[in-house]
Design a protein around this nucleic acid. Structure first.
Lengths: 156, 156
DNA sequence: GATGTCGTCATCCTTTCGGATGATTTTACA
DNA sequence: TGTAAAATCATCCGAAAGGATGACGACATC
């Protein structure tokens, strides 16, 4: 967190500096101000959003783990509408929350790339989670993983 | 979410516009470029962070409400009797019996090759059936086809 | 006999998946 | 503060899946 802010400031300073530099070099063409403004705006906006998401992610995970413990009490209950994953099976198999999240997205028919964009991570990361989840489920394909997941009550 | 992005773009455009306007009015003092860059950067950064927080907060609340309901609503036995596919949907979509057969095998996690050996046909044939079924279901992937199939009551 | 549907099979080509492996960074917790 | 578990990302490579297209035979129907 502290690091983020630091990097943020650093990047900002660098950007300003390079702007200042390049401005007096070769891009004194017309409309440079608006162009630069737009560029900087876009850059910092995306960065800001990314930062915001990143910061709040930690809180989310905390909430999720809490949730898991609460759900553990009613235990073996195949609920139907708001789905409650079978945490017993999940824990015995050692399937993490993130892996389960990706499994549900797989079950809903998304490709790895789509999942990656939805979760704001790289496709490689998704593939890693997939591989681990498949291994834990003893599945060789995503369709098989989905099937196993449904059998075990991990997926709706 | 879509709304957010829209507002975001709108605000961005407005900002740029006002920048462009004011620039030619009275603030052509020196160092305007860097000043503006910095200003825009800060503005958009904070806005981005705010947006990020906002987006994730809604997700969090959703999670929480789900939890509460899960704890309150207990069980409901899962019905498991011989499955009868929804022939109405099947016919309107023009899905043949063979295609449905292959879809069920896909849903059970088999690969094309495995399906081919099970049905005593070539893998190419299976792939053709797959392609046709996916087309009729509007699916791009087998997982998506399975999901659609379950939604339509074609698959158990 | 012409037409149409269905099932079968093929080839070519691109995209997606999955396995193996290693590395770095967060996060949680003792 | 150190450690273990999670999460993240990457690269290489082979396998699986998917798209497009053409073809052929069996059967039913008009």
């Amino acid at each position: 967190m502290r690091r983020h802010v630091l990097i943020f400031g650093l990047v900002g300073g660098l950007l300003i500096a390079t702007l200042q530099y390049t401005e007096y070099r070769f891009v004194i063409i017309e409309h440079s101000v608006e162009l630069y403004s737009a560029l900087v705006a876009i850059l910092f906006a995306t960065f800001g959003i990314w930062l915001g998401l990143r910061i709040t992610r930690s809180r989310e995970t905390i909430r999720e783990t809490v949730v898991v413990r609460e759900v553990l009490v009613p235990a073996e209950a195949p609920a139907l509408e708001p789905f409650a994953p079978n945490t017993a099976h999940q824990q015995t198999l050692g399937i993490t929350a993130r892996e389960l999240e990706i499994l549900t997205l797989i079950a809903r028919g998304f490709s790895n790339r789509e999942i990656a964009t939805q979760l704001f991570v790289s496709e490689n990361t998704v593939k890693t989670h997939c591989a681990r989840a498949f291994d834990k489920l003893g599945a060789a394909r995503r369709t098989q993983a989905v099937q196993r997941g449904k059998e075990l009550g991990l997926l709706p």
